[in-house]
Structure formats: structure tokens, C-alpha cells
Amino acid sequence: MVQALDYLKETASQTAGPYVHIGLTPNFCGIGGVYDTDLGTTMVSERTLGERITVIGRVLDGTGTPLKDALVEIWQADAAGLYNSPSELRGAADPAFSGWGRCPTGGEDGVFRFETIKPGRVPFKDGRPMAPHITFWIVARGINVGLHTRMYFPDEAEANAADPLLLRVEHRHRVATLVATGSAPNYIFDIHLQGEKETVFLDI
């Protein structure tokens, strides 16, 4: 006999269902008075350092229809390329920037919108700089396990060309699914769950 490897199993994911907004953005869906504000609504203040940007987009199903019951979260470095996280050991991030945002897709058009700042570059594991990017996480009815992906910037062609993650995309035309359109300060990032333009999702 050998010793047992006594690791536990991760709790299995289940869909966020049609009413994820009740739990995560109650004010948005009309349940007022429980929380002062919905978490993750405001990412920047006057004191936040960095270039202001807006990211809008939609989450589209296999027919090209935008989801109106999805929830999108983003996570990113500050303008200097530092994360506001206990696991960030390279330095202290901008205290006026949490780096995390949350937005429901709702309304008539299913558009999500983040007012944030352009993130600085952060290193890959081997020290090579990654191109500036924003980490996305998408949940909705019909999505069994939350989807991870990244948004890169269209005006960073040189950095994108050397980005270690983008270089791993085997079918090169699919790199475009990870790069926003538009130009500073207004970027557009549509997420396609399926179909010809299916976004590259990550198992990270």
C-alpha cells in the first residue's frame, strides 16, 4: 500500500440560471434596499491612475442573438501592471483601483458596459511581458461552467504579436476573437458563444 492522496474534489459548477441578476446585481433587477449598491458597478474614481477607457459588448448565442440574462465580470491590472490582490507580490497596486468589475447584460440590447482604465503589462510565467489585456468571466442560463476569456487591445499590434497566450492559438484567424474593435478610449468586445466567430475560451 502507498499513502492516500487525500485531495478533495472541486465543487461542481452549476448554471447561474435565469435569475443570476437577483443574486449578483439585485438593485439592477429591482430588488432595492438589501444592498446600497450592486458590487462591481463602479471601477474608477477621480483618484484612479491611468487612461480612462470604456468597454462595451454583447454575449451572443449560436444564432447571433444577444443574451439578456448573462452576467459578465472582468479582472485586470492597474495602469502600472499590478493586481490589487494579496497574491500580487511585485508591489502595491493603485489603492484607488480594485481591478474588478461586474455588469449584467440586460435591457433591450443586451449590452454590457465597463468604465475602467487601460491596464499595464504584466509578465508571463517566464518573465516575457504579456500584451495589455482584461480577463473576462461569463455566466448565464445555459452555461454549465463559467467561461473564461481575455480581451486584448486593437491598438497594441506589436505587443499582441508577441503575447504568449495569443501565440498559443493554433488557428491564427481565431486570434481576432480575443481582440477588441474600436479605438481609444472606446472599445467594443463581443463574445460569441458558438458559431463561426466563436470566441476562444480558456481552460486556465
Binding site: D61, L67, G142, L147, L193, V200, L202, D203
Partner: peptide
């Protein structure tokens, strides 16, 4: 059915 990615995830 219409909300499931059909291509392999990029593992990293």
C-alpha cells in the same frame, strides 16, 4: 444547445 462553445478550450 445554443449557448455551449463547440471548439476546444485553449489550455494554459
Amino acid at each position: 444547445v445554443l449557448r455551449s462553445p463547440q471548439k476546444a478550450l485553449l489550455s494554459l
